[in-house]
């Protein structure tokens, strides 16, 4: 089908959890592939061994800068893809690979892992560990509309993706501390509880209405800050939640 977009999954130093999250759209994944996406590259799912040209590359994992192949592949991904999406905590912020310090056999020199945004320009962030199937679905549908939709759909897709592009522009590091630095310290926290719900390691509790981050549990995935309604809140999109959710849900039915 000519009007599908070409997309693929590039695996850097990640755990394949992000890929499993893609697959966890279950029946919806099949619809996605039937209608919207030619899945042209994905070592885990298909036999294509070398990175082809793509409209959208979903990159999982951070880059070990002591591994030549990894560095070469991330650069190649940028050259061959119109849109690069950092999929998951490791690609966006380093996540647990931020703790890496080498010294482990059989390659003790593998000690430095960088989020992909430190090596290439990244267009869109999907933070979280693991990222959620629904968030991946929403971004994929939006990317499709952006590239193949009507003018109105393109407009909507752009508005939806804007904060995720701004996140990509904001930083390559994140952790629970962002809730302090950029929300509470900025006088913006109203104690809704989103951060605690989003945290994948139960590191956040609410004490008298405000979050407390157990920093010895935090894995630096960036989910809490991205989920916070006071990190970004784009009225033009979120107030239209009913129609947009119908669109996203309907797309993969």
């Amino acid at each position: 089908m000519a009007d599908k977009i070409k997309a693929g999954h590039v695996h850097m130093s990640g755990c394949t959890g992000c890929e499993v999250a893609i697959a966890d759209n279950y029946g919806g994944l099949l619809t996605l592939l039937d209608k919207y996406v030619d899945w042209v590259y994905d070592l885990t799912l298909a036999d294509v061994r070398h990175i082809p040209k793509m409209d959208v590359a979903l990159v999982e994992g951070s880059v070990c800068i002591q591994d030549k192949l990894s560095v070469q592949e991330i650069k190649e991904t940028r050259e061959k893809s119109a849109v690069v999406v950092a999929l998951g905590g490791c690609a966006c912020y380093g996540n647990i690979t931020r703790f890496g310090r080498g010294g482990q056999p059989n390659q003790p020199q593998h000690e430095s892992y960088l989020p992909i945004g430190d090596l290439i320009k990244v267009d869109v962030y999907i933070p979280g560990c693991a990222p959620t199937p629904q968030m991946i679905r929403n971004v994929c549908v939006a990317a499709y509309l952006l590239l193949k939709g009507t003018k109105e759909q393109q407009e909507l897709a752009k508005k939806f993706l804007t904060p995720l592009m701004q996140l990509a522009d904001r930083s390559t590091s994140a952790c629970g501390c962002d809730l302090m630095y950029d929300v509470i310290n900025q006088g913006l926290c109203m104690g809704c509880g989103s951060c605690a719900a989003a945290c994948p390691v139960r590191a956040i509790t609410h004490e008298y209405g405000k979050p407390n981050v157990n920093r010895e549990m935090c894995i630096k995935c960036g989910a809490c800050y991205a989920q916070c309604p006071r990190s970004f809140f784009n009225f033009d999109v979120i107030t239209e939640f009913e129609a947009i959710l119908e669109l996203f849900d309907g797309a993969l039915k």
Partner: peptide, 16 residues
Amino acid sequence: QAVRKGQLYPVGLRDV
């Protein structure tokens, strides 16, 4: 607002 952002941008709210 948090609930609706969570539905449209479920960064850490899988299957919610």
